[in-house]
Nucleic acid binder design. Structure first.
Lengths: 202, 202
DNA sequence: CCACATAGATAATCGGTGCTATATTTCTGG
DNA sequence: CCAGAAATATAGCACCGATTATCTATGTGG
């Protein structure tokens, strides 16, 4: 096990952040003890405090990492930009399902962090950047799609991106509480409607 | 002060619930102590525990009350069913602004409770009912509007209600982190688009 | 190999918090 | 008015959890 110090450090840091993400998502920041996070990462609070200084520092680091890491995860998971409905369906799947690790409560962490962002300026700014980044990627995807299909977008791409993201988020919230209340088909229809030229004439 | 016991009790209960709603919204359930809630209501933890038995009991009661109280607040706040854009604008204002008490973090409480609902079956069911109720009211409003204007809705009213609610929620989330990222006009346009027959000129 | 530096583990402190047992105030029925 | 009941207050306990010194292990440069 001749790991370099740097590797060791990075591994613990990553492990702690992963554990924190998981626990914070499942139980909420304040309901999770530093011991619980450390134990889940097979480390101790000593390591945690050496890395992050405080429990809040752990949260800040998590938000930072989170912003950089998952920013383009949604858009990257999209298969190919051929079929718009396919893209929407993939995005929807990605949001409501755990995406990466099965059972990982993605949406829960998203909302947990959103709440902290709404209550803490520093976190709020980080998240705002993150959302802006996601919208940017989405907007790029839309313009690329429109270009590839020789279609004109009904509104500026950034606005359409905001539209799509808004709808997907809100639908996911409702879906989580009552899966029957929102079907994938309805989501696809609605986002399609928000983004494309109306097919019918007045 | 010859208040009857019943009045006293009811007032205390209401005061505690109000204080809990406010504090939970601002800081989060686990970050708020029972003492803090009691003090904010000018009572003591003795009264709190006599009424709700436990801190979690207070949360349950809050969710219950919340469901019944604010269910039709959104739809009731709508001025008159004449102008659809006006209705949407009012709903949007209601969601992003504090609605009732100025400065009351409505959306924060909404999301705080949503998180607890996603983590706790009992709360989740309550909230699911609440959301269903809101959608129901919204759907009724839409059918009434369509009827009054002799228009046909593009899809079944319940689906349109889900659409509108989805978009409004998701837009509110983004708006809270970055007010500039979502404008009222964009919201109105989008919801309009989701609900009405496509038309090229106003 | 060996001193040093760095990463991580241990264990104790200390304030805070949920909750309970008991006292006190406030109403009600006679 | 006055018991008894109901609503709320008071005080304190038992525990937990964030933080911090301090100690041990692990890699590193000479």
């Amino acid at each position: 096990m001749a790991r370099t110090q740097e590797q060791r450090k990075a591994a613990t840091r990553a492990g702690l952040l992963d554990a924190a993400a998981d626990q914070f998502a499942r139980k909420g920041f304040h309901a999770v003890s530093t011991d619980a996070v450390a134990e889940a990462a097979n480390r101790t609070t000593g390591a945690l405090y050496a890395h992050f200084g405080s429990k809040e520092g752990l949260l800040f680091a998590l938000v930072d990492d989170y912003r950089d890491a998952t920013a383009d995860a949604v858009t990257a998971s999209v298969p190919d930009p051929g079929d718009l409905d396919g893209i929407i369906a993939a995005a929807w799947d990605h949001i409501i399902a755990a995406s990466h690790a099965p059972g990982s409560p993605w949406l829960l962490l998203e909302m947990e962090l959103w709440l902290h962002g709404a209550r803490n300026d520093r976190i709020g700014r980080q998240l705002a950047e993150r959302y802006a980044h996601v919208r940017g990627d989405l907007a790029d995807g839309l313009t690329a799609w429109a270009h590839a299909h020789d279609t004109k977008l009904v509104a500026p791409a950034p606005e359409l991106a905001t539209r799509a993201l808004s709808f997907l988020l809100g639908a996911a919230l409702q879906h989580r509480l009552d899966a029957a209340s929102v079907t994938a088909g309805e989501v696809i229809d609605a986002v399609h409607l928000l983004v494309t030229e109306p097919r019918r004439h007045p």
